[in-house]
Design a protein around this nucleic acid. Sequence first.
RNA 1: GCCGAGGUGGCGGAGUGGCCACGCGACAGCCUGCAGAGCUGUUCUAUGUGGGUUCAAAUCCCACCCUCGGCUCCA
Length: 484
Amino acid sequence: MLELYNTLSRKKEPFKPLHEGEVRMYVCGPTVYDSSHLGHARSIVAFDVIRRYLEYKGFDVRFIQNFTDIDDKMIKRADEEGTSTVDLATKYIQEYFEDFDKLGVKRATAFPKATEHIPEMIEHIQKLVKKGYAYEANNSVYFRVSKFKKYGKLSRQERSKEDAEEPEPAELEEKEQPEDFALWKAMKPGEPFWESPWGKGRPGWHIECSVMSTKYLGESIDIHGGGLDLVFPHHENEIAQSEALTGKPFVRYWMHNGFLTVNKEKMSKSLGNFFTIQEITAKYDPEVVRLFLISSQYRSPIDFSDAQLEEAKSRLVRIHNAIDLLQRRLHEAHETEARDPLKPSDADAELWDRLMTFQKEFETAMDDDFNTPMALASLSSFLSKTNAILSSDSTVTTGTLLKVYEILDRIGEVLGLFRDRMQLGAIKTAEATATEELIRLLIELRAQARKKKDFETADYIRKQLKEYGILLEDEKTGTTWKWI
RNA sequence: GCCGAGGUGGCGGAGUGGCCACGCGACAGCCUGCAGAGCUGUUCUAUGUGGGUUCAAAUCCCACCCUCGGCUCCA
């Protein structure tokens, strides 16, 4: 039974989607005025794993993530760079996809942009005005917080003392109460604008998520996610805007990820202590970065350091080695069985047993609010056992090995890890085939030298190959090699 | 001030009443011509401090100390 922590109740709750077998989730995406940094990756990867696990559980997941492509920061940055907000957005959205494809993040069902939903936002605001939840002042429109009685139910904050947007004296004068927030902002000279019933202007920040969530997923959705910093005011305001209009619960489960910190301080643009995803992936394999990010539970803070990335790297190598061993045994078993079918042995039984235990442990961990560290622990234990069995003299049938393979593949799919490693019989180019044959020839020569106790030649071959990035490893059943 | 998260071994990180995951590092043994990988074991009588409850507490209660975050843009 899947349980997840709901920020609304501050408790873990059993997860039951609104529509049987289907999950509708919305995650707040970035404002595309600058490169994504590792803090963003923390959030995006966390919800990617959540989404993947829901799919593993058999849910049909509709996953929407927005791009905020118009707001104060967009305008300011476009001005500084002498470009338009549209070009700025195009540039960083493209970069966003490059970064997160690299990190193995699955694409959302749709990536709606704020500027593509202006008419819907205007309509929503008009309805709020009609119902008395919003009012116009000097060509801007504000939400009347005092009218929405449940305001503060998510963040447990009394009403905000300031506008959620930049507090400007002019705005404060326009607003009835300081806690009211902007739904529509009147145009200032030189700014991009859209026509509206209140004159030229642009939407406030919060309205886009309410509108796009409703448009793509319906008035009530299952999961709405984002960073902990969005709880107030962003998500609180989304609830107000949406529920004031529909009278229905906007979101059933609010989920918020913890921060990525550096020296225990939040990684953020304003503190200047951030690393972009491009910087990090230039230094570490994206898969290492991903493993690092999921080695903490998504709600816990996670502290960045090179030592942590190095640890993740070692861990990943270990996982890869275990998979490589499995692949070799599978090929061997396959060749053997082509001649003479293998009988299931005690090793088969034990491996099978461990596999079932592993799968159960993995699911229990993930069912408990997506406890990825515990899930990884079960993986480690299982791989240790697999290594022990596959390194011993006992034989395991292809049937069992294939089952191990299948389950590892499914779990790799949930974590977004090591699946590249698992390609069986990948198609090779002619050059690659020739290279492999040459390497095998050298291994054969070295084996002959070793047989004659000519270790000088044997070590020379191994050393030279290592220089070319090829690592030889001697096993009982022969010598294996891999690229390093 | 208000709201919230957290302090676990050399390090990272789980665990919400008993026997304390898992990983990284270090060391030892097995294996090996050597190395690597792998396995096994040790490091490991770890739970911010002081009290209390209990046969039993990292886990529950009380007090205190410290760190970080939100209340202004932020994943």
